[in-house]
């Protein structure tokens, strides 16, 4: 299945389902092949029933402008681009509201898959691949 985005401007925003003990929240993350990990804002995680500040493992993340404190936790599942990852570790950290997204979908979601981004048609496809060497 192909997913559509605006190839002319802005971020590549992808709808994801964050599943947790309270429920499911659909939020938008930016597809970010420059990020090694998937990062989700604290409030979307709380909406699904997590308390990142209480259960997350403190960690430091490196951003384009320096380092920041964050926490890492595993969520029940994350669904995006037709694929679901169970017990998926995410980094809990807020991006500025001006970014227009609630986090980034990073490389860890794509490993072992084939990601195709067509900037002419404005389409994304994610298909199963093989094991990552």
């Amino acid at each position: 299945m192909n997913f559509h985005f605006n190839p002319a401007r802005g971020l590549i925003r992808v709808e994801v389902v964050v599943s947790g003990p309270i429920g499911n929240a659909v939020v938008q993350l930016a597809l970010d092949t420059g990020a090694t990990a998937t990062l989700i804002g604290l409030d979307p995680l709380r909406l699904a029933g997590y308390d990142p500040t209480a259960v997350g493992q403190p960690m430091q993340i490196t951003t384009g402008s320096g380092t920041a404190q964050a926490s890492r936790l595993s969520i029940t599942s994350l669904t995006a681009l037709g694929h679901t990852r169970l017990n998926f570790p995410v980094v809990a950290h807020n991006l500025p509201s001006r970014s227009s997204v609630d986090g980034v979908l990073g490389l860890d979601f794509f490993r072992g898959h084939i990601l195709t981004i067509d900037f002419v048609k404005g389409e994304i496809a994610l298909t199963a691949g093989g094991p990552t060497p």
């Binding site: 802005g10 659909v26 979307p44 001006r98 970014s99 227009s100």
Partner: peptide, 18 residues
Amino acid sequence: KALELKPKRSAVWFNGDP
């Protein structure tokens, strides 16, 4: 508001572009 309502299913997004 979302955390106050605690919905089982919800969607939150920004309706616009930078």
